[in-house]
């Protein structure tokens, strides 16, 4: 049963199911997504993935690995804008929970992201293509980390469009981490090196951590929690 104009809970009308609200929200949320920005970063990322093929007749494995990692990073930077919502303040007091709205946004982007990744992988010649499963894990970790950072920005700031700052921070971390992380973590090694397996255990941990951050930052708090009592 849906709420008619002017009717409220006090009139004893049951609110509609979440599924029904989500079904109605799909079209406007799709329109509200930063589609142009996402499409532009996806196009640039595909171009990066195609570079080994474009620049050399016989590209090597190393250039393919670098290109695929750079493409995944570029696409993840675009994902930092997915949760940007200029109408955040105006819609901060609606009964539809923020986590449902952000999850819907991500769910709408997910098929596009999967198609994009498939295209990026296929742009790498099969002879020099790094292990697809492991590379998919890296790309997924980068993507979820970017979304989790955006969710954290929404949770802890009042900024309606934190995408730019999140992307900038994410880029800095991505550039610094190969230099800062211990070598034996093996997160940026090539498939021929023995730490490849250990490295991907770490990538899996990053993915799980990012999912946990996302899950923790999604719901709106009903009480403020202070680390230091004032």
């Amino acid at each position: 049963m849906t709420r008619e104009s002017g009717e409220t809970e006090q009139a004893g009308v049951q609110p509609p199911s979440t599924a029904r609200v989500l079904a109605q929200l799909t079209r406007p949320v799709l329109r509200a997504l930063p589609v142009r920005g996402l499409a532009a970063t996806a196009a640039v990322a595909l171009l990066i993935a195609a570079l080994p093929r474009l620049l050399s007749d016989e590209p090597d494995q190393w250039s393919a690995l670098i290109a695929l990692r750079a493409a995944a990073l570029t696409f993840a930077l675009g994902l930092a804008f997915v949760l940007d919502d200029p109408a955040r303040d105006l819609t901060s007091s609606v009964p539809t929970r923020r986590i449902l709205r952000t999850t819907l946004r991500v769910a709408l982007v997910a098929p596009f992201a999967a198609a994009w990744w498939t295209a990026a992988v296929l742009l790498i010649p099969s002879k020099i293509r790094p292990p697809v499963g492991d590379m998919t894990l890296e790309a997924a970790a980068a993507a979820v980390l970017s979304l989790a950072a955006a969710a954290a920005a929404l949770r802890f700031t009042a900024e309606p469009e934190p995408g730019q700052r999140v992307a900038a921070g994410f880029l800095v971390i991505a550039l610094v981490s190969p230099l800062a992380l211990p070598n034996d973590w093996g997160m940026y090694v090539s498939p021929t090196e023995k730490q490849w397996g250990v490295g991907h255990d770490h990538w899996a941990m990053v993915l799980v951590g990012a999912v946990a951050v996302w899950a923790a930052c999604g719901p709106e708090p009903v009480r403020r929690r202070r680390l230091i009592p004032t």
Binding site: S5, Q24, D85, V94, P95
Partner: peptide, 28 residues
């Protein structure tokens, strides 16, 4: 709630935007 600096999705029409908020207010 009408906040101090209400933001909008600028490509929405006035009708579409209010309709979007109405869905968020569970008018399905």
């Amino acid at each position: 709630y009408l906040p101090q600096t209400p933001g909008f999705h600028p490509d929405f029409s006035a009708f579409d935007f209010v309709d979007y908020v109405a869905i968020l207010k569970e008018l399905t």
